[in-house]
Design a protein around this nucleic acid. Structure first.
Length: 849
RNA sequence: GCCCAGGUGGCGAAAUCGGCAGACGCACAGGACUUAAAAUCCUGGGACCCUUAAAGUCGUGCGGGUUCAAGUCCCGCCCUGGGCACCA
């Protein structure tokens, strides 16, 4: 028996859809909207493997379903087309990145096309397109020209920034303004490779080191974005979104809000103070030494002459460690004494000041008070260097011994906290904390303080293939941002990237960098570019209005398509759980502050599809492992509809699962069986046993329970069970002698979102001249699901002994009587009276003997 | 080390509220059709015991507990995957 002609069918309908523009989304405000979005891909040269379309097929099914349910559906696709891999490819091949990008996008689009995904390609965007990055630059300038107002808790135009009265000179004013902008310049250490004279990404460091190059941490002038101003809002507004809990938690941890206090420790013999941050101000009585990050300039001020050499040596070693090594090598603590002492302001005792790389310069104040008795790291350090350990907290349960070989880090009861004014001993940790914060605030030696792990976003890259930063620096040292009518600031036309190797490729294109302004002043453009995250931070808004040359997006369209909810469903990998999703939320909130967007959050519901493993079920599908399965080959062999069904049938969308080359046979068989169920394969006409008649009760039950199950499962993205139900439908309906046409048509609509080409073809064979895409999805009628009899189980001592059909109206007493009278049960109950009988209506009867 | 997710047949998996564990599919076995094979259709299947069947016993990572009843709830552990990692 031959297979159904999927090649012919799929080709025909893909062409039909394109020619009829059936997936083109209209701005029809009379309908409720549904905005469903995929994380757009980076168009790499490798093309797609079968793991990539997993999420796209899922959103395609939902988009088709929602459209059939009467929604105006927006389901667009585009490309995140700036990025390092293309730049590297261009360096080695000499092919211009724009050229390579164009080729890759075409290949991607073709691969997506043959899967039968109903994207509205009229709305396609690419982040490397000047019409697009004009607006990425515009949003950057919005940030640059904004400050964060703590009174109104939002960003405001920089012109509205109040200048402190004690600042008079223009230069100082400008400096002050720059210090408050949301986009600002700072010197930040990066992984610097001298031989390559370039900055390396963290993951590149290992690669070049192993080739014998040296990589050090070196401060470089960088653009930063002040995302930390939004830390609290980013944290609080997570309550507004329907996201996987794990993702929310990762963001919470990333933001890392911790409440504590800053306390000042005066340095003996100097006019200096060391300010430390601690989450446990209650343990200050146990602080027996201080530790400062070796990088801090403060170290030079306080170090005693005889310790200077040792300190310098230690600093050199620290500098050569990158972040990874600094953490990996921490099996044993290292550090050097500075020779200086500080005064513990509560105990009035002298304590030594050390430097150690376990204290990080960019977290808190870069200095800590070490409390070895109650902190694991301090304990380890104190043990190694023989520093005193003083217990100041004991467990609430005083019978528990205080271990001597480790720190007690839990909350408890204060001990050994002897102070002339404060009575602390015996108080619980929470109260001690409060008392000490009050005390240090009163004496102006400290304050309550909230610290975040989140730091400002390093926003510049010393590369070529990205958005230029639209800022001009004049020869006199002033600068200005470009005006909207000067955007986009285009990348220069270049022949070859090869010659631009090194720090900031753009700096080498002199005719581009040097610039004479309208007023004749000479200046130079910023030569750093934006990171790949920039373009993906706001692309969901551009799809609403991709051709707009006046604004990033029309406000009326924004109100309709984004509105209160933002994107209704966002589907993509969990590898973007923190960075992309946090950065995009940040930009959205800035746009919100200016009223450019209506919702506080960009993505109201988020779903992560799982990874696809190779057929061995162990390793991730990837080119380097060599276990890649190409969708083109699968589609060639089985057709796009079988491919779509199988991808969704593999298992729950969110879990990691292996691909199976044989499993797809099952989906293919299902469609072939359906084909023969609907048509006579010889004539390709409606099957002879399909008749015009009313559905029987049994048929109505089967059809409507299928409609219900599939609808519910699509809403929760449980496609595997939806497909299982459709298979059950076919298995049962195949046993019917004749099949009512109305049932056949309704089931076809249920199938259509999953296997659209297949459904279209049968819809046509069944006499329709319009597309099934625009039909209404069948509604489940609960009346047909009402049954009057149900099978219950009869147990004796909780073991199943019999089954029984009872009326759905049977009471527990009635079904108990019926059960007792069953011959096999009566036999077991003979001569005894059950101690207890559990009878749950429509479930079971259990006799306990 | 910390956080998150998960552990169910040979395999992918299913199982609203605690109520028949293993739906649906793959692979496998037997049968029908065929000269034969493929395709298709029908049948079977957790394990143990047993010639077979019935009956019985065991069975959702491991050990306890709650309950008439536990994959599902509680306590303790083991393992796998993902993420973060000296954050004071």
């Amino acid at each position: 028996m031959s297979n159904y002609p999927f090649h012919r069918i799929e080709q025909y309908w893909q062409q039909y859809w394109e020619e009829s523009s059936i997936y083109s989304t209209k701005n029809d405000f009379s309908k409720p909207k549904y905005y469903i979005l995929d994380m757009f891909p980076y168009p790499s040269g490798a093309g797609l493997h079968v793991g990539h379309p997993l999420g796209y097929i899922a959103t395609d099914i939902i988009a088709r379903y929602k459209r059939m349910k009467g929604f105006n559906v927006l389901h667009p696709m585009g490309f995140d087309s700036f990025g390092l891999p293309t730049e590297r490819y261009s360096m080695t091949t000499g092919i211009h990145p724009a050229e390579a990008t164009k080729t890759n996008i075409e290949r991607f689009k073709e691969q997506l096309r043959i899967i039968g995904l109903g994207y509205d390609w009229d709305r396609e965007i690419a982040t490397s397109n000047p019409d697009y990055y004009k607006w990425t630059q515009w949003i950057f300038l919005l940030l640059y020209n904004s400050w964060y107002c703590h009174d109104t808790k939002k960003s405001r135009p920089i012109e509205e920034l109040p200048i402190p009265t004690d600042i008079h000179y223009e230069q100082d004013i400008n400096q002050y303004i720059d210090s408050r902008r949301l986009a600002f310049i700072a010197n930040i250490p990066v992984n610097w490779c001298e031989e390559l004279s370039t900055v390396l990404a963290n993951e590149e460091v290992e690669e070049w080191r192993s080739k014998g190059y040296t990589v050090i941490r070196k401060p470089v002038r960088q653009w930063m974005l002040r995302i930390t101003e939004y830390a609290d809002r980013l944290l609080e507004d997570l309550a507004l979104v329907q996201w996987p809990n794990s993702t929310k938690e990762m963001q919470i941890n990333w933001i890392g809000k911790s409440e504590g206090a800053e306390i000042q420790f005066p340095v003996l013999g100097e006019e200096e103070y060391i300010t430390v941050f601690t989450t446990r101000p209650d343990t200050v009585f146990g602080a027996t030494y201080l530790v400062i990050a070796p990088e801090l300039p403060l170290v030079d001020l306080i170090a005693s002459p005889e310790q200077k050499d040792a300190i310098e040596e230690y600093r050199t070693i620290t500098k050569e460690k990158n972040d990874i090594e600094r953490t990996e090598l921490q099996k044993t603590k290292t550090g050097v004494f500075t020779g200086a002492y500080a005064l513990n302001p509560l105990t009035n005792t002298e304590i030594p000041i050390w430097i150690a790389d376990y204290v990080l310069p960019d977290y808190g104040t870069g200095a800590i008070m070490a409390v070895p008795a109650h902190d694991d790291r301090d304990f380890e350090f104190a043990t190694k260097f023989n520093l005193p350990i003083i217990q100041v907290v004991q467990p609430v349960d005083s019978t528990k011994a205080i271990p001597s070989d480790e720190a007690f880090t839990d909350y408890g009861i204060a001990i050994n906290c002897n102070h002339t004014e404060l009575k602390l001993n015996g108080l619980p940790t929470v109260e001690v904390k409060k008392t000490i914060i009050d005390y240090v605030e009163q004496h102006k030696i400290g304050r309550a303080k909230i610290t975040y792990k989140l730091h400002d976003w390093l926003f510049s890259r010393q590369r070529f293939w990205g958005e230029p930063i639209p800022i001009i620096f004049y020869e006199d040292g002033t600068k200005r941002s470009l005006e909207l009518d000067e955007l986009p600031l285009l990348l220069p036309e270049i022949d070859s990237l090869e010659s631009l190797r090194g720090e900031s490729p753009l700096a080498k294109v002199e005719q581009w960098v040097n610039f004479t302004d309208k007023d004749g002043r000479k200046g130079a453009f910023e030569t750093n570019i934006m990171p790949q995250w920039a373009g993906s931070c706001w692309y969901y808004a551009r799809y609403l209005d991709p051709q707009n040359t006046e604004a990033f997006c029309d406000p009326t369209l924004e109100k309709y398509w984004l509105g209160e909810n933002g994107v209704d469903l966002y589907v993509g990998g969990s590898e973007h759980a923190v960075l992309h999703l946090l950065y995009a939320r940040f930009w959205h909130k800035v746009l919100y502050d200016y009223g450019y967007v209506t919702s506080k959050e960009p993505f109201s519901r988020l779903f992560h599809q799982g990874m696809l493993l190779g057929t061995d079920g162990k390793r991730k599908m990837s080119k380097s492992v060599g276990n890649v399965v190409n969708p083109d080959d699968v589609i060639e062999k089985y057709g796009a509809d079988s491919f779509r069904l199988f991808e969704m049938f593999l298992g729950p969308l969110e879990v990691t699962k292996p691909w199976s080359d044989t499993g797809i046979e099952g989906s293919f068989r299902f469609l072939n069986r359906l084909w023969r169920f609907y048509v006579n394969p010889e004539t390709e006409h409606i099957a002879e046993n399909v008749v015009e008649r009313e559905m029987t009760k049994k048929e109505l039950f089967l059809l409507h329970s299928t409609i219900k199950k599939v609808s519910n499962d699509i809403e929760t993205l449980s496609f595997n069970t939806a497909i299982a139900q459709m298979m059950i439908f076919l298995n049962e309906a195949s046993t019917f002698e004749t099949k009512p046409k109305s049932m056949m048509l309704d089931f076809l609509k249920v199938l259509a979102p999953f296997a659209p080409h297949f459904a279209e073809e049968l819809w046509k064979i069944y006499g329709h001249s319009t597309s099934i895409v625009i039909e209404n999805f069948p509604e489940c009628n609960e009346e047909y699901l009402v049954v009057d009899e149900v099978e219950i189980i009869i147990q004796v001592n909780s073991k199943i002994k019999a089954k029984l059909m009872v009326s759905t109206s049977a009471t527990s007493a009635e079904q108990e009587t019926l059960a007792k009278n069953l011959p096999e049960i009566a036999a077991l109950l003979q001569g005894t009276t059950p101690k207890k009988v559990v009878s749950v209506p429509q479930k079971l009867v259990n006799f306990i003997l």
